[in-house]
Design a protein around this nucleic acid. Structure first.
Length: 501
RNA sequence: GCGCCCGUAGCUCAGGGGACAGAGCAGCGGACUUCUAAUCCGCGGGUCGCAGGUUCGAAUCCUGCCGGGCGCACCA
């Protein structure tokens, strides 16, 4: 990647201090709190340090002028040439703009969704997919080798109940009391073959439509076969007729049962062990688990078994996200908890569209519970900010279409307008925004940033003509760079970047 | 009872040590002979749950409360 103009400036202020874009343009193009931060260590007055910094900064060719503000902030105002350089860097990088080149490229596996195939994917599962997939996209963009896997159970009590329910339906009977009662059971009954395989195909299709694609699928029954070889490697003990893993001494909250006392069947936790070993022995450097908050009680379990088996626990990472609460018509109908609370992803996508669905499920941070009023989400679909961002992209596509093969150049004629400066500064933030989102496993930063970019573009568009203006070539370059950035943001969260709307 | 997450504008949420706390939606008022008005500009709206503490500086960090969600299975 070519030099990031922002980081070039960042090297000015040293480590541990921030170079920020102030919200108020009065405070310059960039500002730093370096003097405040260094004051303690240097035992020097902040404004004294700031004075030094101002002198240093002013000597730089990129800096038009620098000034001290408030308790010791240093505000930097940059020359047009800096903006031109920043724009050129984006155009030179093209599709690669903002991507990372890590010193050590990791093989990362993101295991996500992993809902058992006893029914269609729900909106709750979809959050797992939207979040996990965006994290995967961010890590890939950060330069890692990422794969996505879906893990499911194909044996055991739940699956037996599921199969029995479909069998009953095939005989024209009602499903067992503890079975599955959804309408989809009857639909499955009409198709031949193993309903589990059929259900999986249907789940895969839903997720594909949701733009979550898997590289591989892991089955619990296959993994369980390797258990007997693994058990001796584990730290276990027998109690009450069951076999326990001594996980609490390896960082877990408690010990977990591996083999049940009632007949020696392996538990799901036992399969976890086989699965983790499988992952780590496959050559995956980092195994990421994406789990809903209802599983947070086991967040330390995975690293604990890694430790128990002698693997580096840092290779295991558990990402938790809070649940999705659904309501209908704004009424917190507690009664719906039992039946109506479940909304299938397919229906959700039918109602609000794939783009809005992806956006909606990823725009909030993983720690935030998402409240969705299904009726309102459908009704408000046109007001969803996702369309605001897409519209900016489509607008640019229109301009570029109309421009035909006109010249595109970052060479500036005349001075830069405020809107152009603001937009370029915004575009230059992408590498930092993407890196931060990847690092924090927080894709919600992307939609937030994308709105800012669209904001700045719409303002620029409103104030300045692109085509048939004196600065046409330069502004076309600016449009193209903006389009690249918006398209990248949307791609990172699995939303389409339309050419027309 | 214990553990994790969350309380920020009427609603949905950003921001997680720095300069007057931000967006979208909702409300009100303006702007289209112009590359897409799904746009732009303006206005109103806040004790950042409460109380202490750390700091030059706290929505942000610490402690304690209050309120909500989710867990605490030989289910997954």
């Amino acid at each position: 990647m070519s030099t990031d103009p922002v980081s070039a400036l960042a090297s000015l202020v040293g480590t541990g201090v921030t170079l920020e874009r102030p919200s108020d343009a009065e405070h310059g193009d960039y500002a730093t709190n370096a003097a405040l931060r260094l004051a303690g260590a240097r035992r020097q007055a902040p404004r004294e340090i700031a004075t030094e910094l101002v002198e240093t900064a002013q000597a730089l060719p990129e800096v038009e002028h620098a000034e001290i503000a408030g308790p010791g902030f240093v505000n930097l105002f940059l020359v047009d040439a800096w903006f031109v350089g920043a724009l050129r860097a984006i155009l030179d990088a093209g599709e690669e703009f903002g991507c990372g080149w890590p010193e050590r490229r990791e093989r990362v596996q993101v295991e996500m969704v992993s809902a058992n195939p006893t029914g269609p994917i729900t909106v709750a599962h979809a959050r797992n997919g939207a979040y996990g997939d965006s994290v995967a996209r961010l890590l890939a963009f950060a330069g890692h080798d990422v794969s996505r896997e879906y893990y499911y159970n194909d044996t055991g009590a739940q699956m037996d109940r599921f199969r029995a329910s479909v069998e009953a339906a095939r005989r024209g009977e009602e499903p067992p009391e503890d079975g599955y009662h959804g309408a989809y059971v009857k639909e499955l009954a009409e198709r031949p073959g193993d309903p589990v395989a059929e259900m999986l195909r249907s789940i895969e299709a839903s997720l594909k439509r949701f733009r979550v694609h898997f590289d591989s699928w892991a089955r619990q029954s296959v993994l369980e076969e390797r258990l007997s070889d693994l058990l001796p490697r584990l730290d276990t003990y027998e109690q009450d007729g069951a076999l326990w893993a001594r996980s609490s001494t390896y960082g877990d909250e408690e010990d977990r049962v591996l083999i049940r006392s009632d007949g020696g069947a392996a538990t799901y936790r036992a399969a976890d062990v086989a699965y983790l070993v499988d992952k780590l022995e496959r050559g995956i450097d980092r195994a990421i688990y994406v789990l809903g908050a209802d599983h947070h009680g086991t967040r330390n379990w995975y690293a604990a078994i890694a430790r128990m088996l002698g693997y580096d626990p840092n290779r295991v990472e558990v990402l938790l996200y809070q649940l999705v609460h659904l309501t209908r018509g704004g009424e917190q109908t507690k009664m719906s908890k039992r039946r109506g609370d479940v909304v299938f992803l397919d229906d959700f996508m039918d109602e609000i569209g794939v783009d809005a669905a992806r956006w909606y499920l990823v725009k909030s941070g993983p720690d935030q519970t998402i409240e969705i009023d299904v009726d309102l989400a459908a009704e408000k679909s046109q007001k969803n900010p996702v369309y605001y961002v897409q519209y900016a992209h489509a607008r640019i596509a229109g301009i570029i279409r109309n421009a035909g093969d006109a010249k595109v150049s970052a060479d500036l004629i005349g001075g830069l307008a405020v809107e152009e400066r603001e937009l370029i500064k915004r575009l230059a933030e992408l590498p930092a925004v993407a890196a931060d989102a990847a690092e924090k496993r927080g894709p919600q930063g992307i939609p937030q940033y994308a709105i800012r970019v669209a904001d700045d573009f719409h303002r620029f568009y409103h104030e300045h003509r692109v085509l048939e203006s004196e600065q046409q070539a330069f502004r076309l370059a600016l449009c193209r760079a903006t389009q690249t950035v918006i398209a990248r943001c949307l791609d990172l969260i699995g939303v389409e970047a339309p050419e027309r709307m």
